[in-house]
Simulated assay, not measured.
Amino acid sequence: MEGITVQRPHARTALACSAALLLATLTACGGSAQADTKHPTVPEGVTAQAGSATSVHVMWERASDNEGIAGYDVYRAGRKAASVAAGKLMTDIDGLAASTAYTFTVRARDAAGNLSAPSAAAPVTTPAAAPADKEAPTGPTELRGEAAGGRTVTLSWGGSTDDVGVTSYDIYQEDSRIHSVPGTRTTARLTGLRPGTVYTFTVRARDAADRSSADSDALDLTTPSAPGAPDSTAPTGLRTKATARGEESLVDLSWDQPDTGGTIPAYQLFLNGEPTTTIVWGGTPPTGRATYRLTLTDPPGTRYSLKIRPKLPDGKWGDFSAQRTVVLPG
């Protein structure tokens, strides 16, 4: 019969032996992947701060691993309470009891499932429940700070008041909470930042009923560039003004253009972290301070965060400006 190949027993045996010999040869020469058995380093700097009578905010510093960190596991008294992805260095643990002492540890985890040893335990005691706390705290005042190197900044602010008491202060960077400190402190030290980058910080106070204050005034800080790195290409002095016009809202932006060694042909405008429009000049690009008017049709009270970045003379996008927040007027 044509088209059918019949293997004799001795031929099948020879093929099996050849496959076994090839596998043995590859294994002997290092052809098979080595299992990852190395454990990540232990997370350091673990802190636990009561956010309310029933929640605790746990933070830690980044760990390292020979193949890369896949995530972190947070333990309460030795039992896993939460797991987060590798990019997060904090989490909130809810559902706790008021006026209760807790301890938290953190373990790093790699893609092979290897866990680090537990971190040092971070103790915390939740405050008493405050059912009579019906008012949010006042907003922090006079936010100020300075860059202490390319990767660290220090912040300080005027304290808030509350009808019962301030439990904690939360530090936000572009509307994302990145740090918390106890309500008895009005300073914070932030690490893990990038050199040559503009950061916009705000602070909110929080009470035991988990109510947050309004934002403090925004503070822009630029970390120094790394040695030998090019200067920042971020626009500076970004200001916004929102006015109502019938059913529309007009947002006027103005900013100082960066020195890029050439003409900036366009800017990209981001709303709430998403690219919204490209600002292209109708004629000769302006020099010095630039302006742009944005028209929005969202309802009054809608909140937006805005930032821009320039298109550089070489065609690449430059650094982001500081972020500004606007609330559409009625």
Rank of each mutant, 00 (worst) to 15 (best):
I264V: 11
D259W: 15
A188H: 03
R211C: 12
Y292A: 08
G262T: 01
S212R: 13
T191V: 10
A266T: 01
T236G: 11
T184F: 12
T197L: 10
R239S: 15
P275I: 04
L221Q: 00
T243Q: 08
F270T: 00
G246Y: 09
G273W: 07
L190D: 01
R177V: 06
S232F: 12
L238H: 02
P265S: 04
R194Y: 04
G262I: 05
D252W: 08
D215F: 15
R177M: 08
P265R: 01
P227H: 00
L221T: 02
A229R: 00
T222A: 11
T260Y: 14
D207I: 14
T236N: 05
E247Y: 12
L238D: 00
P227V: 02
S213M: 13
A266Q: 01
L269C: 06
Q257N: 05
R211Y: 12
T277M: 15
R204I: 07
L193I: 01
T276M: 15
T278N: 09
D231L: 15
E248D: 13
V181H: 05
S176E: 10
A242F: 12
G273I: 06
A214Q: 05
L271V: 05
T186A: 07
P285V: 04
T236S: 14
R211H: 13
F270V: 00
D210N: 10
P182L: 08
T191C: 14
T191A: 15
T284H: 06
W255Q: 04
G192P: 05
Y292N: 04
G237L: 08
D220Y: 06
A205K: 05
T222P: 05
P286V: 11
P224D: 00
T184K: 15
